[in-house]
Amino acid sequence: MSERAIRIALPLAVLALGVLAWDVVVRINEMPPYILPGPELVLTTLIDDWPVLWRSLLATLTTTLEGFALAMAGGVGLAVLFNQSRWIELSLYPYAIILQVTPVVAIAPLLLIYLSQEAAVLACAWIVAFFPVLANTTLGLKSVDHNLTDLFRLYGASRARVLWELKLPAALPSMLAGIRIAGGLSLVGAVVAEIAAGASGAGSGLAYRIAESGYRLMIPRMFAGLLLLSVTGIAIFFLLSWLSDLALRRWHESAVTRET
């Protein structure tokens, strides 16, 4: 079997075994669905409740994408700003770190007091996702080959030219690594904020739907929602990996498949 086939087949086999074990446990113990629903029930719930779940998924996805876009713009923008001005970097970088290390679960309820719910959810998605973009892009911008910098100087390149023609392309691989992490994290941020918002009794996203289903003991719907969230996360990850690969495959070692 080829390497590629094994890569796909092995995780799928583990998944099948897991689902099977789950099903067997539920059946043997005759567990009621409000404690642990079997895989079949989760799947039928997913289909039956699709209109509700789909609407919620769209709401969460919108927040995630908005938060992600803002995180990319903010992360790359701040990194460029830091790179151009040491003063700004020294003044602001510590606060970026503080924002990153303070658990967003703890910030979300506060944000919900001062911001509208959509804005608060978006802010959470942004807070969680922008830091990896910032940190990785900053690193990338600093890792430019010194000789290439000298070469640009020798030919009298302006600051803007050096940034655009040298630093940004050189930073692209690490920038994309940060962006890949940010994609998954913006989903996490959106979900965390929705759960917090859900506790205050308002919301429309998938995470809110899961929380609500929990209160109403609709456990199969909780599982269906969780399944959807997880599939969304996987989709985001693969989409971003694919895009990053597309951008780098001609020149960067990380994306080059070696012939052996």
């Binding site: 080959d145 000789n147 290439l148 000298d150 070469l151 020798l154 040298l166 392309p169 050189a170 692209l172 001609r250 020149w251 960067h252």
Partner: peptide
């Protein structure tokens, strides 16, 4: 007009 050649090729890998 000066041309400079470094010890390493010092090429832009993305170009």
């Amino acid at each position: 007009g000066i041309g400079f050649v470094f010890q390493e090729p010092t090429l832009m890998p993305w170009a």
